[in-house]
Amino acid sequence: MSDESKSCATPSNAEPTATRSTVPMWIFSATLVLIYLGTVYFDHHSGWFSAKVYSPYANVDELELYQPKSGAAAQLARGKQVYEQVCGLCHGVDGLGKPGQAPPLAESEFVTAKGITRLTHIPLLGVTGSIKVQGKDWNMAMAAMGAGLSDSDLASVLTYIRTSWGNHAEVVDADAVKAVRATIKSSAPMNGDQLMKMPE
């Protein structure tokens, strides 16, 4: 405030003034650090603006994990769980397989076939030697990873891989798996040619 404008005011009536000292950098830094920590908290607790996620759940995945399921949804959830334990290590949780180790399941002709005879043989007996998937030769050995699974668990896994990652094949029920298992006599791993000779 200039001195001129104060000319008619006595000192006791003078209007207050403010100094022009600047704000130090530390408080801006502290603000930014707090904003960062705050957004991390928000990221962990907000469910990202989902209208379905209420406290104490923190995100959509957690919410779904705790929801009781029935029918097809329950089978799919069980299938996903078993798949990630038993199959996912080699075939990948995204179903794309791993080069030199395991062929992809996404859009594989064995997985999406109409029938499940060939498909069910693979986990029950394992595979050895060459096998052609999506026009590409794979030469590897797979153990009988599914031999120890119950009919319903195996049906769930097959359903999961037949309906995930862009696959749209029909679901599999435990009776169908049981029927295929009943036809198996030997325990020797299959090779590609043997599989192709079977009906779908």
Binding site: L34, G38, T39, Y41, H45, S46, S50, Y54, S55
Partner: peptide, 26 residues
């Protein structure tokens, strides 16, 4: 906290409240 609304409402409030310390310091 714990209001019967989607979790992002109280989360946003908690975020803003922790930032309130800045104007208080100022």
């Amino acid at each position: 906290q714990g209001a019967p609304v989607p979790a992002w409402y109280p989360a946003a409030s908690a975020l803003a409240s922790s930032l309130l310390i800045i104007p208080l310091i100022a």
